[in-house]
């Protein structure tokens, strides 16, 4: 969307907002999903669209896909087109934090306005059914014994799965830069490698492999969440003596330099949406975990994530 039209739209919305001060019902938003159709951020953006409209927190919401480079293409475009705008949102998450660093993206998350953290899914560490590793301790012992032959499968290089594999390797007492991580296009393809017994262990979002874990085809050793989660038998890494936590969070952002009242109006609309039964129902259907945090808390959180992810990526040699 161009500068001109976004300005025009912003003006229209601003007029509408003046006429009726009630928050929400009059919002006409567009959400940028910085990924193609079918991806995680696309799903999050469309879920937010659905929940905001159905719960009456926005009159209309349009989702626009701007795929590319782990979300950094969408981020760069958004940072430019949504400056000061009160009708444009962006969905993003931990993968974007990593992609900004590995791609040397000129625009980072500090140039947009964090509105709210929405969901946070645990990653799960699994081994194939036939694996000799029965517990997390067995796996960490194997890593320590022979890091090269402990082969991991997971999503793309530098993503959350890769970062977790490196963190666990480090915590197990081996060199994280030697981790033998085989990247697949996503949890699905990695799953086939797990079921085929071609790798030692795998990492993916819990929801993605839930079926195989429940059917017993995969053995879940641990989740990356800080606390146990109801309904998930596998215990956190931390509770099992591996001091690592990593949450695959997704959040929503507004453009740079927005006025305080716009920020307040947008975050209220999001906060009300997150509390709505419509949103809770979507979370349940998609198997997402609620991880809501308001704007200020979210901003601090991003800063600490940025540091942690950066340190890990430098250790694996993916970022400078």
């Amino acid at each position: 969307m161009s500068f001109f039209t976004s300005r025009l739209a912003a003006a229209c919305i601003a007029v509408a907002a003046m006429v009726s001060p009630a928050v929400g019902q009059d919002l006409e938003l567009s959400i940028i999903a910085p990924a193609g159709a079918g991806g995680g951020w696309d799903a999050a953006a469309r879920a937010l669209q659905d929940a905001m409209v159905k719960s009456g927190n926005a009159r209309s919401v349009q989702v626009q896909n701007v795929p590319g480079a782990g979300g950094t293409v969408g981020l760069a475009q958004f940072a430019q087109s949504a400056r000061g705008s009160d009708d444009q949102l962006l969905v993003g998450g931990i993968t974007m934090v990593g992609a900004i660093l590995t791609n040397n993206s000129p625009v980072d998350l500090s140039s947009v306005t964090p509105l709210a953290r929405l969901t946070g899914d645990p990653l799960v560490v699994v081994v194939p059914k036939a694996s000799p590793d029965q517990t997390l301790a067995d796996l960490t012992a194997a890593i320590k014994g022979d890091v090269a032959n402990t082969i991991w499968a997971g999503g793309s290089a530098g993503g959350a799965d890769h970062i977790l594999a490196a963190l666990i390797t480090q915590a197990a007492g081996a060199d994280p830069s030697k981790v033998n991580y085989v990247a697949y296009s996503g949890g699905g393809e990695a799953l086939a490698a797990m079921l085929g017994g071609q790798v030692t262990a795998g990492i993916s979002g819990y929801g993605e492999w839930q079926g195989q874990i429940e059917s017993g085809d995969l053995r879940a050793l641990a989740i990356s969440y800080p606390e146990p989660i109801e309904g998930i038998a596998a215990q956190p890494l931390k509770a099992q003596g591996v001091d690592v936590e990593l949450v695959n969070w997704r959040g929503v952002f507004a453009g740079p330099d927005i006025p305080d009242e716009t920020k307040a109006a947008l975050s209220t609309a999001i906060a009300n949406t997150v509390k709505s039964p419509e949103w809770q129902e979507i979370l349940k259907a998609r198997g997402w975990t609620d991880y809501y945090a308001p704007a200020d808390e979210f901003a601090t959180f991003i800063a600490s994530e940025n540091e942690r992810v950066g340190a890990t990526l430098r250790a694996i040699g993916l970022a400078k």
Binding site: M1, T5, A9, Q62, Q64
Partner: peptide
């Protein structure tokens, strides 16, 4: 179909 095609003055 709710597909966002690039908007300009006419689309508005």
């Amino acid at each position: 179909l709710q597909l966002a095609l690039p908007a300009g003055p006419l689309e508005r």
